[in-house]
């Protein structure tokens, strides 16, 4: 790894550790190897959103050309969000692509991702199904996102109706996550989800 990249991550690392947000447990960064190329990030769901109370784990890969090129970031924790793939965790955020600037840091990236959770951009979607639901039925979207936060990110809001529907599909032999995806995609219409799963 180029010297400047490692040196910068080392300095940034100190910055994040000392930052106010870490003190408030809003963001966290951990090293996964000694060469500062792979890190684990963590952000909490912003208050007053469907993600509130959840903890979302991120995979951060630092390229050799950092900071002239952005770090590669994706969600490890499954999340229901128009700009984040519900399958791969890939993120659609301009600063992680062409709008990257060398003055940005891991701290600003994590804070931007937290901001993305409170302000989705459905017109520039990563997950078309989620974006469609967001635009057409915002309440349904909120409920689904809250349910996913509960199941995958440790959020506090248990939705018994969702759990029951998933259990019905699981009892039919469908894998749990697959059942959740199908139901989420069809606005929790169990007939349509079943039809899609068994067609």
């Amino acid at each position: 790894m180029a010297n400047i990249a490692a040196q910068r991550i080392r300095r940034e690392f100190k910055e994040v550790i000392k930052s106010e947000e870490v003190a408030k447990c809003a963001i966290k960064v951990e090293l996964l190897n000694d060469s500062y190329t792979e890190l684990k990030g963590e952000i909490t769901g912003p208050p007053d959103t469907a993600y509130e109370g959840g903890t979302f784990v991120l995979e951060i890969k630092v390229p050799e050309t950092y900071p002239f090129n952005p770090p590669k970031v994706r969600f490890i924790t499954k999340i229901w969000h128009p700009n984040i793939s519900s399958v791969t965790g890939a993120i659609c955020l301009d600063i992680l692509k062409d709008q990257w600037a060398a003055a940005m840091t891991l701290r600003t990236v994590l804070l931007s991702l937290q901001a993305l959770l409170s302000a989705a951009e459905p017109d520039d979607p990563q997950d078309a199904v989620v974006a469609k639901q967001f635009k057409e039925n915002i309440e349904m979207f909120q409920m689904t996102a809250r349910h996913w936060t509960n199941v995958y990110a440790g959020g506090p809001h248990v939705n018994k109706e969702c759990d029951d529907k998933i259990k019905r599909l699981v009892d039919m032999g469908v894998e749990e996550h697959q059942a959740r995806v199908a139901l989420s995609s069809y606005n929790w219409d169990i007939e349509r989800a079943t039809e899609q799963l068994f067609s």
Partner: peptide, 14 residues
């Protein structure tokens, strides 16, 4: 590790 911000390069943070 942290020079005064007016002496710090925002790219390499040194």
């Amino acid at each position: 590790s942290g020079p005064e911000s007016r002496f710090e390069c925002p790219i390499c943070l040194a």
